[in-house]
């Protein structure tokens, strides 16, 4: 089944070369049109609009898995380089980075947001997978809650299963004061956006310092709790990265819908008022 394809690195260079070439061609045509007193903005505008529609077709292709018209990865490659190309053509088309006028500036901002989210997505799609692989466990996104509650219930079993000796009471109360909340709550949006190690490290440190108050045979329980904390931390890191990997697509696609809407209006008005 392994189809003969270009190695990824070669493909990347080929794609970039083709894109740069296409941008050069468009820039040459635009400057020629401008020099000849033609309508370069009409030309780049139509180029942009058709690119926009082509770019949006990726979303259509993704939603139609039966479509025999090329694999989504091919479409994605085309999408990426076409996106790059479109950003370049935008710079040729727009009089400024952000155009004047209410509609135009909105259009510009939405376009730039879509572009920026696209580049962000491109970046994290290439960098996060390896990081995700490095984090132990391979939880599926929709099962994150399941994993979380499993960890929480395991931790609570561990803590509540302890006998009621005074030494164990220390561990128990520590669990109820600090660990229970850590295990039961989902990570906050802030943490998801900018994950850190501090809370996990603090809990581990607290747990470690607790060891001397405990009976000698509780060492294993402490280690198991520490392992659960680390697993929970790994799970949250997975969640953070997978959440970002999914969220940007949503933002990107929502914005591109708005972009298409605004672009259609812009096209209609530009055509109407160009003469």
């Amino acid at each position: 089944m392994a189809t003969i394809r270009l190695p990824l690195k070669t493909r990347r260079w080929v794609g970039l070369t083709v894109t740069v070439f296409a941008v050069t061609v468009i820039a040459a045509i635009t400057s020629t049109l401008s020099d000849r007193l033609g309508s370069p903005s009409l030309f780049t505008g139509w180029t942009l609009f058709s690119c926009l529609i082509l770019l949006m077709l990726l979303g259509v292709r993704r939603r139609l898995p039966f479509w025999p018209l090329g694999s989504v990865s091919t479409w994605t490659q085309v999408h990426l380089h076409l996106g790059l190309f479109t950003a370049a053509v935008y710079l040729l088309h727009a009089p400024a980075i952000i155009g004047g006028g209410k509609l135009e500036s909105t259009l510009s901002i939405v376009f730039l947001l879509v572009t920026v989210s696209g580049f962000y997505g491109w970046f994290i799609s290439r960098t996060f997978p390896a990081q995700l692989t490095a984090v132990p466990g391979e939880p599926r996104f929709d099962r994150m809650n399941w994993h979380r509650s499993q960890l929480a219930s395991t931790a609570s079993e561990l803590a509540n299963g302890l006998p009621d000796t005074s030494g164990d009471q220390v561990l128990k109360s520590f669990y109820h004061e600090s660990l229970a909340a850590f295990f039961s709550q989902a990570p906050s949006l802030g943490w998801v956006l900018a994950p850190g190690r501090t809370r996990c490290d603090r809990l581990l440190g607290d747990l470690k310092s607790m060891e001397r108050y405990l009976p000698a045979d509780r060492r294993e329980t402490v280690e198991q709790l520490a392992a659960l904390i680390r697993r929970r931390h790994d799970l949250d890191r997975q969640f953070s990265m997978q959440w970002k990997l999914r969220s940007w697509v949503v933002i990107h696609s929502c914005l591109s819908l708005a972009l298409l809407l605004a672009a259609v209006v812009h096209v209609a008005i530009a055509l109407r008022f160009s003469h």
């Binding site: 939880p139 599926r140 929709d142 099962r143 809650n145 399941w146 994993h147 509650s149 499993q150 960890l151 395991t154 561990l158 294993e220 280690e223 198991q224 520490a226 392992a227 659960l228 697993r231």
Partner: peptide
Amino acid sequence: RHDDRELPPPPANDRPGDRWVLEQD
């Protein structure tokens, strides 16, 4: 690891296209 407790694997009946997911409770 020696200190890891074995946790049950998650149910393998994911349906990512569905709108709802059934929790274990």
